[in-house]
Computed example of a mutant assay.
Amino acid sequence: MSNYPKTMKALVAYGLGDYRFETAYPTPECGPDDIIIKTEGCGVCAGDLKCQHGAPKFWGDESQPSWVKPPFIPGHEFLGKIVAIGENVKGFEIGDRVTADQIVPCGECRFCKDGHYWMCQPHNIFGFQSDNNGGMAEYVRYPKTSVVHKVPQEMPLDKAMLIEPYACSKHCVDRGQIGCDDVVVISGAGTLGLGMITYARMKNPKLLIVLDMVQSRLDKAKEFGADLVFNPQNQDVVAEVLKLTEGYGCDIYIEATGHPSSVKQGLSMIRKLGRFVEFSVFGQETTVDWSIIGDSKELDLLGSHLSPYCYPFVIENINNGKLKTEGLITNCFPIEEWEKAFEYATGKYGDFKVCITF
């Protein structure tokens, strides 16, 4: 055990559209199975923005119940140093630098019991429930079933802040099962797309093609390992990919934009018997002729969610430089300036990844 303050700075969501910065919010108590960390930094995710803006996926509507449980502290991309440990916790000590999978599995549902903990049925994720507060606060509690990982003390914060997004990127690329003969297209070169690109490069595909509508992202994609980059606004990317593949199409298409047009584009440029991996969260429905999936091409259509079993590899390979990270953390703001951090995280000023620090 250790001593830490009774109150802390925190951003607290009390309800739909009611986010408040507090200077004396109660710090989490350390139970016998818990770990308490002092937060170093917390990334601002698109999910945090969508939740703050009131998306029905979080707050519910006539077709779905509310998933969030206010009051809660947002943030699921965070790390820090251990300041308190419960008496039953083994393998960790005060001062260890740690992070955790964003999901806190229940350990009891069918998915947890058969090893698919990231699809845990209750699906409690840091930063959305009152009993599972996130990293936009000075202190955070990791409960008993958290999947906690040690982070090297020497890893710079601008690299460590990419562990969670890159773990999601790795799982997505793994779903695609890239081989050395594959022509791979990654649509979308934001932070997560770039994490996919630098990892996919390690798989040594025959050709790695990246699509995005922002030139600075395409430049970074080239730097991170893309063989070719195309802007769908400026050229017929379907025609370009068909031209590069003798008219067959790409072997694997990874969708990381969340735009319906990217889905249609992918279904058009993927070859028969290809693999289509869907990663994004969408703001609107996508309408396509589904016969292309079955009758026309017999595609493998795969989803990707969270980052199971990915953290150890990502931590090791960010630390040794094999996964490129340069220039992705573009702005960090103190928690007092959370509104500015959320604004910059929209990408309207050209940022890749924005974080909150303490």
Rank of each mutant, 00 (worst) to 15 (best):
A345C: 09
A345V: 03
E62N: 11
P5C: 10
V147T: 13
L207K: 14
G350E: 11
M213Y: 00
P32T: 10
L49F: 00
T145G: 03
I209Y: 01
D236W: 01
F72N: 11
K81S: 15
K144M: 11
V241M: 05
V184L: 13
S261R: 14
L208Y: 04
D48I: 05
D351G: 05
N234H: 08
P70E: 06
F352K: 11
G274N: 05
E22S: 05
C120P: 04
G95Y: 01
P70K: 08
Y166L: 09
K159R: 14
D48M: 07
D300H: 07
I335M: 15
K222G: 12
T23E: 14
I197W: 03
K353D: 00
G188T: 08
I209C: 11
V89N: 11
E278N: 13
I35Y: 08
N204L: 04
E246G: 00
E223V: 02
R175F: 00
G294N: 15
C45G: 12
F352T: 07
C120G: 08
C355H: 05
T257F: 04
R201V: 02
M119G: 09
F276T: 02
C172S: 15
G43M: 04
E223N: 11
I94Y: 11
N124A: 08
G179H: 06
E326Y: 04
A84C: 14
S291G: 07
G294D: 04
N124E: 12
A200C: 14
Y14K: 13
Y344V: 04
R217E: 02
H149L: 03
D219N: 14
K206S: 09
D174S: 09
K144R: 15
V288S: 05
K69M: 09
K150T: 04
D33H: 13
T357G: 08
A345N: 07
T145A: 11
D18T: 06
F352Y: 15
Q284I: 02
C42T: 09
Q233M: 12
Q284P: 00
P56W: 03
M136Y: 05
F72V: 05
I82S: 11
E62W: 07
Q121S: 11
H171G: 01
N132K: 13
K69V: 13
I329E: 03
N88E: 13
A345F: 04
E337I: 00
C42D: 10
A226F: 00
H53S: 12
Y344W: 06
D101T: 02
I329K: 01
P260N: 10
H149S: 12
D295W: 10
I209V: 15
I178Y: 10
E337D: 15
P26E: 08
V183N: 01
C180H: 09
M1H: 05
A100W: 03
G327P: 02
I103M: 14
P143A: 04
E138T: 03
I125D: 03
C30Q: 06
Y25A: 10
E298K: 10
G91S: 06
R271N: 07
D181S: 12
W290L: 13
G47A: 15
W59R: 10
R201K: 15
G91N: 14
C332N: 07
L79S: 11
L211E: 06
N132W: 02
